[in-house]
Simulated scan of single mutants.
Amino acid sequence: MSKMYSSNLTLEQWELIELFISPATSRDRHPKVEVWNVLNAIFYLLTQGCTWRDLFGNSPP
């Protein structure tokens, strides 16, 4: 995400949450989007009350 929103995770918050997200194994595909960006988009959606398709242009698909 290029723009900062008040709902975005801080680096410290991300480091705490990242511990609970399982790392990709060698047989898994590489993710097409970063989980941090997906979480930021979800938190933005929850705080702004908009629909997924009304998210900002640089949000993950």
Rank of each mutant, 00 (worst) to 15 (best):
F20R: 10
G57W: 00
E15N: 15
P60V: 09
S59T: 13
Q48V: 09
T10N: 02
S22Y: 02
N37I: 01
L11T: 12
F56E: 02
W52Q: 06
M4F: 09
T47C: 08
P23I: 09
L39H: 00
I42R: 02
G57R: 14
P61L: 07
R29A: 12
E12A: 15
R29W: 02
E15G: 01
Q48T: 15
S26P: 06
D28T: 09
T47R: 11
T25E: 10
E18W: 01
P60C: 06
S2E: 14
T10C: 02
T51N: 11
L19D: 08
W52V: 13
N58M: 00
L55R: 06
A41K: 03
F20P: 03
S6A: 06
E15Q: 15
S59D: 12
W14T: 05
S7R: 11
E15S: 15
S2K: 14
K32N: 11
L19F: 00
L55G: 02
W36E: 13
F20Q: 12
R53A: 03
V38T: 13
F43K: 05
G49T: 08
R29I: 03
S6M: 04
C50T: 11
L19H: 07
Y44V: 00
C50H: 09
Q13F: 05
S26D: 14
I17K: 05
D54V: 03
R53T: 12
K32L: 10
L9F: 09
R53F: 03
I21L: 14
S26C: 03
L45Y: 05
T51D: 12
P60M: 11
K3P: 03
L19Q: 15
F56I: 03
T25G: 09
W52C: 06
L19E: 14
I21V: 15
T51C: 07
Y44C: 01
N58E: 15
Y44P: 01
V35F: 13
Y44M: 02
P31Y: 11
K32Q: 13
L16G: 04
G57A: 08
S6E: 03
Q13A: 13
L46D: 04
D28Q: 13
H30Q: 11
S22W: 04
S26I: 10
K3G: 04
G49E: 07
W36H: 01
N8A: 05
E34K: 12
S59H: 15
T10H: 03
E34H: 10
I42W: 03
C50A: 05
L55I: 00
I21S: 01
I21M: 02
R29T: 08
G49A: 07
E15M: 11
N58I: 00
W36Y: 12
S22C: 07
E18P: 00
L46R: 12
H30E: 10
K3Q: 14
S26A: 11
T47E: 15
K32C: 07
F20H: 13
S22A: 12
S7N: 06
P60K: 07
D54N: 14
L45Q: 13
K32A: 10
T25V: 04
T47M: 08
G57Q: 10
